[in-house]
Design a protein around this nucleic acid. Structure first.
Lengths: 160, 160
DNA sequence: GTCGATATGTTATACAATTACACGAGGTAG
DNA sequence: CTACCTCGTGTAATTGTATAACATATCGAC
């Protein structure tokens, strides 16, 4: 499991910006940004890759912030429910959202070689999916798009 | 976990058609459509819903076709790899593909109330996703779209 | 007949997620 | 003030999902 995103960037300020954005959003919406929740988001932002719940739990454990699975899962549920993180179903792992606050239908690009994950924004509107769904009489509340393939780095190692 | 698809249809002939299609495709491509593999596809087609690997394993076990997890997982891997079935990541479950042989990017409509799953074909070409991906230098090999919401039946029970 | 490739059988284990219940801090109505 | 409600956390135990590793079997090519 390697980095989220294939491009370089100012990682330090990216963490700070995301954290304070989350803090602001919580304040505005009366949500409790508790130490565990904050720390888990921090970890996800800092590692900048998709992390399994137990990986996160291990880190929490060494910091004395909780040692049992529900601690991690509850924090992750909170972050995912409020748009601060996403679950990557294909990996059973979690990653910080790269643009919290904006409503979007993200698409994840998962490298099958190095397991890095990039969150891309799609041109596909929720409406395009909705059109398909309505044809079946289905009402979509949430959609997930995950693509598997090769990231730029791994393409050079393993050419077509 | 309830039915795949929200509409009624001639289920009996649908099973037969899919099975013989799979058989044909295997023959054409030099794949071995072994008893376990055939039986698992049969089960998926017959149940016509998303089944967990261990649910399938239980059925295999009562039939003496294998009793350990790898038996089920290997058969499922085969079916998924060759386009006869899909994995529903959100449910950690598997469902028979409703149009094997055709290359397509399916979209799954998953009801959060009754867990029924419908496989819809999208207007979204693999190319639309590919465009987004190429912007990141990523090469997509496989894409999964899963939507969560309410199926027609459950909408009437639980109105907006 | 030996070899390589493919499929299956089996044991054990790793990884992921949830249930259930106890505890504690903060607000608020009486 | 305290009784109560809500929300978040602590912890134990369990259930569910998936894979690793190795043995065995079958078939076809040479």
């Amino acid at each position: 499991m390697d980095p989220v995103g294939f491009a370089h960037h100012d990682h330090h300020s990216c963490i700070a910006a995301n954290l304070s954005a989350a803090e602001q959003i919580c304040q505005d919406n009366g949500l409790q940004f508790t130490p565990v929740r904050r720390r888990v988001l921090e970890i996800l932002l800092h590692e900048h890759r998709a992390l399994g719940a137990y990986e996160i739990l291990d880190m929490l454990r060494t910091e004395g912030l909780g040692s049992q699975p529900p601690v991690a899962y509850r924090a992750l549920d909170f972050l995912v429910s409020n748009g601060f993180a996403h679950k990557i179903e294909h990996l059973n792992a979690f990653a910080a959202c790269v643009h919290p606050g904006h409503s979007h239908t993200p698409m994840f690009l998962i490298c099958r070689a190095c397991n890095s994950v990039a969150e891309a924004t799609t041109q596909i509107s929720a409406d395009t999916l909705g059109k398909t769904a309505r044809a079946e009489g289905f009402r979509i509340e949430k959609a997930v798009i995950e693509a598997e393939g090769l990231c730029p780095a791994c393409q050079t190692k393993e050419p077509a």
